[in-house]
Design a protein around this nucleic acid. Sequence first.
DNA 1: GATAAATAACTGACTGGTCAGTTATTAACT
DNA 2: AGTTAATAACTGACCAGTCAGTTATTTATC
Lengths: 217, 217
Amino acid sequence: MTEQVKKKAPVRRRKEARPQELTAAALSLFVEKGFAATRLDEVAARAGVSKGTLYLYFDSKEALFLAVIREGIVPIIDEGRKLLVAHADDPVRMLREYLFGWWSLFGATELGGVPKLMTSEAQNFPEVAQYYLREVIQPGKALMQAVLDRGVAKGVFRPTDSALVTHILMAPLLHLALWRHSFAVCCQVPDMDPQAYLETYFDLVLKGLAAAPEGGV
Amino acid sequence: MTEQVKKKAPVRRRKEARPQELTAAALSLFVEKGFAATRLDEVAARAGVSKGTLYLYFDSKEALFLAVIREGIVPIIDEGRKLLVAHADDPVRMLREYLFGWWSLFGATELGGVPKLMTSEAQNFPEVAQYYLREVIQPGKALMQAVLDRGVAKGVFRPTDSALVTHILMAPLLHLALWRHSFAVCCQVPDMDPQAYLETYFDLVLKGLAAAPEGGV
DNA sequence: GATAAATAACTGACTGGTCAGTTATTAACT
DNA sequence: AGTTAATAACTGACCAGTCAGTTATTTATC
């Protein structure tokens, strides 16, 4: 050991990307097995560290949960908002971007398991649920409601209770995400093509919202 | 104590309704706190017995889970089927009965928490999930698909991929049920009236499915 | 109809394993 | 040397599942 041997290269420890690695590992395990059934030893192992290390970055299992949501989801909202303004003059196009964008940016990724996770655990972790409601659901709703209202103002959509309709319109997307993270995994379903599902759904919605009896896009 | 005093009435032990009392207690707790977070001591206490007694009737926690589904849900399917045939000649009316009936018979009751429960736990309990898929989801889907196909045959609905549409149409109902058992409970939501939600939704669906451009029911 | 024997329903203390969270120790780097 | 990062062994609470023992109810016997 005349000089520092090159153990360091293969080891490559002590990064500051550690929290992200941990939240990423936690996300996939939480989504896969649920919060309660996920052991912190597993999370740490998947991130390539020990459980003690996990506690250097997060105070508790619940704090890790909150971080998973915060790091994983909140950035997506802003990204989605930016994509939307690109078509601000065409409500039908905006709605399409919203729904399909939600799916490709969120639902189809690993984050698509988060609605299942949040729904399951909302009652057990009210603070996380409130955070999610405030930072994710409500902004998302507001965004879609703006799209709908604009469509009505332009005479493209018929008037509706847009607060209710935002909920209703999100449901099939959420359902698809939940399905893929529950029954689709454990039962061998005769599979459901997301793209066909989305197209069929969007078609239904457009006809359901259309303003004029024989209106056309 | 000249003759047998009526001690029996207040005591009222040794019933054979015991399993039902246990599954009822388990249902409400599973729905409220999730499967993993529910302790069997609690279930037993809510049913007014000890944990040992619970094990006289059910082999394991998972067996109790399966019983909850079997006893609670499967009977509802048949009941629903009977209600439907009453309007077999009017597809629009049938669809309305289906959706509103689902809500009043199932979604609005304590059983409305079961979708949340099943979604959360499907991956952890594949056998229960497969049972639920086979005995609940698939029959329910088949029933609605029949309604849709009949509507198309009668020229009331436009042709669609009815297998996909059944999924899509169920989503807002499931979403409402999930919502009421998650965020609605823990966050004080600005409340969402189920009746208004259902009416708005049904209106949207009918216009989305209508066959003729200016068709009218 | 009483008394005793047999059985069915039930209990709660106990066990064994699990797992969130802690801490004493070691390795890495400056 | 001292400081920081990481670990692995440890602790203690928790809980599904068990079982020896208790209490209620029925059946048998006189």
